[in-house]
Design a protein around this nucleic acid. Structure first.
Lengths: 247, 247
DNA sequence: CGGTTGCTTGAGATCCATCAATAGGAGTGG
DNA sequence: CCACTCCTATTGATGGATCTCAAGCAACCG
């Protein structure tokens, strides 16, 4: 919920009605399956706590991780349930999930245009993140991809209050990073060492420390605009005024 | 409109109300700009005729094409207009576009649940295509990427009645293919020659001929399921029955 | 015609993958 | 507490896929 507040300005009523949507909470242990490709999903899944990811397994045994889901992230577009999942969702750490029916969420959107705005905003950002991921996969070198990802994960955690200054969680294994970045695990290891050797980051105990954010952003061409969180300037004026009216 | 009919079952009324949404038609010549990154979009853009693409220009002069838009494709999610475009949209051929206000389209969705369903369906497919693109960029070889793309473009054109048997348009330049597939133009040329030498495809006059679709699909691991168009089986049963009731 | 654009080909360099081996922890059972 | 195992991280060596640079060629167009 913390996250949706960024996209629009939700009041207490809005938040209460969103919280009521969940059909129950589910807990999945680290590295467990949430949904397998080909299954018929019955609910939308919202990550409440922990890290998850969406991915596809390929015919030749390779894997491509498509997106990382942090607390507050919805795994799919909120308006519809596909007839079958064309990708899998897996837990990275232990996660707790809310299960939501799309009709319920659509009804909430119809009831409050602020909620609708927030949900669309959230979807827009999720798509922008995947777009940026495609750019990395297609046109950036290994170190750039890695640096870009670290910047993004740090910023996304900051936005939901999960970063501690220049430090944040990074529970991904090097081989998971490889599947995410379209590289081999060996090469991820070497790129990581480059970043460490340049004094840009440290990585200990599944925690990431960014020592020189500016430098890291330069190196990896990270421009935070795509996350659409540039403060008040990014809120459409009609909604900003509405928020102001409420004090 | 032809395309939306695939996602749900629209009747004449539905189609008429969709057609009424457009704020006017715009024509852009081949290789022209539709929207530049950073601009503030005023409408959603729907491709009526011709090919377009979304892309991002990078700091180092490279380019990544993110998606190809065929007639019937909406360039962005239908429910919201971003405060600024985080990617550009360009014309590949001469295109004609419909400009639509998101409020208008949301209102139409509220008015008819079939329209709403069709729009969400369409969005789901668009996202699935981009997901598959990311898989190509991350984990497939040059020939696989190319073969996969050709299969996809042929099938997508078939679905909107723009393919003629095993033949369809392919107005993309080799250097545009390179920007789409995350390769260099030289390597696209060589991969293309491999496919031609294997007798799988021909390419003349901006037209593509697929000589051996099965073989090409095998080679590039193309599985059409992600386009969610597997005939009646992919239509949710409640909607299928509704369509049946109408004859 | 000359200029432009797109396609093709060759040679060499680079990035990254693969294979293989080692080392460090973390957990498990004795 | 030790032996064992599994998983993750690390390192070296080699090969392959793809890139870059460079040149030539064909088609189209004013």
């Amino acid at each position: 919920m913390r996250k949706l507040r960024h996209g629009a300005w939700l009041d207490e009523d809005d938040e209460r009605s969103l919280r009521a949507l969940s059909e129950g909470v589910r807990r999945v242990h680290a590295r467990g399956d949430i949904i397998r490709e080909g299954a018929t999903p019955r609910f939308l899944t919202l990550v409440l706590d922990g890290w998850a990811c969406t991915y596809r397994d390929l015919e030749n045994g390779q894997r491509q991780i498509l997106s990382i889901l942090l607390p507050g992230d919805l795994a799919e577009p909120f308006g519809i349930l596909p007839d079958f999942a064309d990708h899998s969702i897996g837990a990275v750490t232990q996660v707790t999930l809310a299960q939501i029916a799309p009709e319920a969420i659509r009804k909430a959107a119809r009831a409050s245009s602020r909620i609708e705005q927030a949900l669309w905003w959230d979807l827009l950002v999720a798509i922008a993140i995947e777009r940026e991921h495609a750019v990395s996969l297609g046109r950036r070198t290994a170190s750039e991809r890695l640096g870009h990802l670290l910047c993004e994960l740090h910023l996304r955690q900051s936005l939901v209050g999960l970063a501690d200054g220049s430090t944040c969680d990074l529970p991904l294994t090097q081989s998971e990073l490889a599947d995410l970045l379209g590289l081999s695990a060996v090469h991820v290891n070497r790129s990581l060492q480059d970043l460490r050797a340049s004094g840009l980051v440290s990585l200990r105990n599944r925690r990431l420390i960014i020592h020189d954010l500016d430098e890291l952003r330069d190196l990896s061409f990270f421009d935070p605009d795509y996350l659409h969180t540039g403060g008040a300037a990014s809120i459409p004026s009609d909604l900003r005024e509405a928020a102001h009216d409420r004090g």
